[in-house]
Design a protein around this nucleic acid. Sequence first.
DNA 1: TCGTTGCGAAACTAGAGCGTATCGAAACAG
DNA 2: CTGTTTCGATACGCTCTAGTTTCGCAACGA
Lengths: 205, 205
Amino acid sequence: MTTTDETRPARPAGRPRSAKAERAIIEATLDLIGERASLSELSIEAVAARAGVGKTTIYRRWSSKEDLVVDALATLKAPLPPLEGRSVRADLAAYLEVVGREACDVRGRCVMNIAMNETDRHPQLVERIRQAVIRPRQEALRALLLRGIETGELRPDLDLPVAMAAVVGSMIWYVKSTGSGEGGEPAEDVVERMVDHLMAGLAPR
Amino acid sequence: MTTTDETRPARPAGRPRSAKAERAIIEATLDLIGERASLSELSIEAVAARAGVGKTTIYRRWSSKEDLVVDALATLKAPLPPLEGRSVRADLAAYLEVVGREACDVRGRCVMNIAMNETDRHPQLVERIRQAVIRPRQEALRALLLRGIETGELRPDLDLPVAMAAVVGSMIWYVKSTGSGEGGEPAEDVVERMVDHLMAGLAPR
DNA sequence: TCGTTGCGAAACTAGAGCGTATCGAAACAG
DNA sequence: CTGTTTCGATACGCTCTAGTTTCGCAACGA
């Protein structure tokens, strides 16, 4: 047994890496992805400049732009709203609230931008994002709708794939097309109006 | 009166410009916008290469990238479906069919990509696109919904902005999230299912 | 104190794209 | 035929950015 035992966490000699710099790099990366909407426009130079950091510090930690992006997106752990315990309607509102807020937020748009635009050029990155972020949400929504069918709050003959797209797409398109909420949040009554509409549909009762 | 009368369309001497080259340039531009999703990634070099054309031929016709893009997008004259005369439900289906097909098509995505991603960097270009392409469609949809309210086919208390976003957003999100129709068209029954759902809503009757 | 490693800044090489110029060939008018 | 203009191709100088390397200093353990 030497003194550098493997029970010791192998603290390497020398100056330790700055956690602050690392956080700044991640933040800058997320900001820039949200603004630029495309990975090839994301330059390491720009990240370094915005983070107030030398390029060396970035290249020392991540060997490629894609690695950096993966790590950065991983910190957006896609907070799902608490969906259990209340009425299906209330849970739906909570779900829409999150969707709406993220569609407004620069950060929230990161995931959507990449998932929608980079399928051709970075298929495996997109697949990782789908698995980590999008799928869980889709499943949560599916479970929510199924619960509603069971409790009788929703139509028993729902077309699930179509219904799921309608819930998410309506909110996102509303935010995008009205340009509402460049200030970070959509108007406060939008969620209620959206739930009302989604529940009732277009046809008269 | 000289022989070069202004009644003559002033045909200039020399070899006339090739209409074929012009078409090839426009086509290449649209393809690349659809693929790249961002204007700054659109290079004149790439357009020339894909069109099989010298750069000179492009610069001779358009003085800037933005001019070229405007002309290219103008050829996509956003065919609105015939919306009059049938039932509101049938017109809604026709509307959704166009939206769905364009969400699948590389060309159709040009407009959406630019309108959604370039607002910050090319505000006036985006505004021109909104005026020329997006507004007319929104107005057509609004008129369609209002007509439905008048005829009693739709709820009289519709929340119009929300309803419009729901119609368009549902279809687009369905195509995007299911990845259906990379082959140019969504599954054929999607439109009917979507109309059914939009009319009926989530709640039981 | 000394050795090691991280830090930001700056210099450097390489490549991509831009806009222009030039080339010989081709397509028109007269 | 002559003169004019466009054609695709190629080359040029320029700028911008990427990714690497170098530098002097800072922060740690021993």
